[in-house]
């Protein structure tokens, strides 16, 4: 399992370039300020937007459109408000033609792994922030993707929950054997969750964003480039 990405994505007049390779089991963080095009890149990897140029290749197969290889956890989770936690997790399995009962059993299993089996029948509006995050992660993992995309996974949580969830998320990412690409504006998230990471920075004119290079560890988190 590996991910090779070389993409140019356009959204209006806004253009983002990115190129990186990630080996099996790695966690890549895209770190940068709000509005720098991180989410646009993630939506492109998820197959929700077509790249203007280039492509992403997972295990030698070119990603085209939404497919079974990519699971995405959205910012503010976007759990379907009319479906219970278990139905949310079962959604992707049902879309793959799994029978209702089997999908439900698998969904409850995933919720148990996340430690929220007791909330399986609860609606999203009755879940706490931390519980919603666990259900959203279960929903993304239930389709057994080879590429996991996390959009600001901790931004919707309050400060105290965030600490606990960060280490919990780290644990789940350690056991995930595909590639994880995570987007965050918080250097601490990138530092604790990701292995190597890349920093978003402005290149050229204001409407052009480029993903220039990779840089190792703490030195980058400390460098002003992260906050540019």
């Amino acid at each position: 399992m590996s991910l090779h990405a070389d993409l140019t994505v356009r959204a209006g007049t806004f253009e983002v370039q990115i190129a990186f390779d990630a080996p099996t089991g790695s966690v890549v963080a895209l770190l940068g300020p709000n509005g720098s095009g991180k989410t646009t890149v993630l939506r492109c990897l998820a197959g929700l937007v077509e790249p203007a140029e280039g492509c992403a290749i997972v295990d030698g197969t070119r990603l085209a459109g939404p497919g079974r290889t990519v699971g995405m956890m959205f910012q503010d989770y976007l759990l379907f408000p009319h479906l219970s936690a278990a139905e949310n997790v079962a959604f992707g399995l049902r879309c793959r033609g799994m029978r209702r009962r089997d999908a439900d059993r698998a969904a409850v299993g995933w919720l148990a792994r996340m430690g929220v089996a007791d909330r399986a029948r609860a609606l999203p509006r009755d879940l706490s922030g931390g519980q919603a995050q666990r259900v959203a992660l279960a929903r993304a993992l239930a389709i057994e993707p080879r590429l996991l995309l996390l959009d600001e996974p901790l931004a919707a949580l309050d400060a105290t929950t965030r600490w606990a969830m960060r280490s919990e998320l780290r644990h789940h990412l350690d056991t995930f054997d595909g590639v994880t690409v995570l987007v965050t504006h918080d250097p601490l998230d990138a530092l604790t969750l990701a292995d190597p990471w890349w920093c978003w920075r402005r290149v050229g004119s204001r409407s052009r964003e480029r993903w220039p290079r990779s840089a190792p560890g703490l030195a980058l988190a400390m460098s002003p480039i992260c906050w540019a």
């Binding site: 998820a46 197959g47 929700l48 939404p66 976007l78 379907f80 959604f91 992707g92 879309c95």
Partner: peptide
């Protein structure tokens, strides 16, 4: 309705 819910469904493989 927030159309990102529909994106979420598409990302889970819904036609």
């Amino acid at each position: 309705i927030d159309t990102r819910y529909e994106d979420a469904a598409v990302s889970l493989g819904a036609r």
